[in-house]
Nucleic acid binder design. Structure first.
Lengths: 113, 113
DNA sequence: TTAACGTATGCCGATATCGGAATATGTTTG
DNA sequence: CAAACATATTCCGATATCGGCATACGTTAA
């Protein structure tokens, strides 16, 4: 088995730097592929492929206007990622000393099992 | 070029479900590989490999106690991910109505093609 | 209809991934 | 030292990835 398909998982979809960059660019508004390609410094087909992945996990939407196809963001899918990482917030909010303390506590609790 | 090495990038490291599960398990306290392997339902070598990736991006630390090697979390590296996704917060904080409206607009524009 | 434009898809090569099995490394105990 | 235990590494196969290039598809305009 190789890695799970990027296509099915948001975590995987945003593991790609260029795709993250696309999302950042789209935050400023809808854009056609060609424009994105230019801003990313990559080819149009390459950009189209990244957009496809993002579309399949639901992070972008597209709509046609004449010959153009405008891509827009739908970042709701990022919320689970934000929340998941948020579940670790105490690990960077607590001071180092307190973190150590916490870890010590855990150790002790575990010993009692 | 294939995908960037999991080894150098936190986004990539947490793209793997099993690795995310490891982090969740470690949130409750330090654990040796064998225990993690059991809880994940995977082999010890397999688990060791995931731990290596997590260690290389700095999300876990290990320490020796006798024959055992205890793995503990160091989730500070997740902060950038949390913050990056936080940059899109307004897209899911905006009222559903407004978002819905937006989506309806997109659909309608599409029907007109 | 045909031409021109914008975009998507298909094929390819190089590489990385994940999991399994066997084995190597390292630590403690007798 | 040797045996037992805990963990890491290596090799492998099947598959997925990303980027480039050529080309197919779809829409508009002449």
């Amino acid at each position: 088995m190789a890695r799970a398909a990027t296509t099915s998982d948001v975590f995987n979809a945003i593991a790609e730097p260029q795709r993250r960059e696309i999302l950042v660019l789209l935050r400023a508004g809808e854009r056609p592929v060609t424009e994105l390609a230019q801003e990313l410094g990559m080819t149009q087909p390459g950009t189209s492929k990244h957009l496809r992945v993002l579309r399949e996990v639901g992070l972008v939407q597209d709509r046609r206007t004449g010959k153009q196809r405008l891509y827009g963001i739908d970042a709701r899918g990022l919320r689970p990622v934000h929340e998941w990482t948020g579940g670790f917030e105490r690990f960077w909010n607590e001071s180092f000393d307190r973190l150590d303390e916490y870890v010590q506590d855990l150790k002790q609790a575990r010993r009692k099992e």
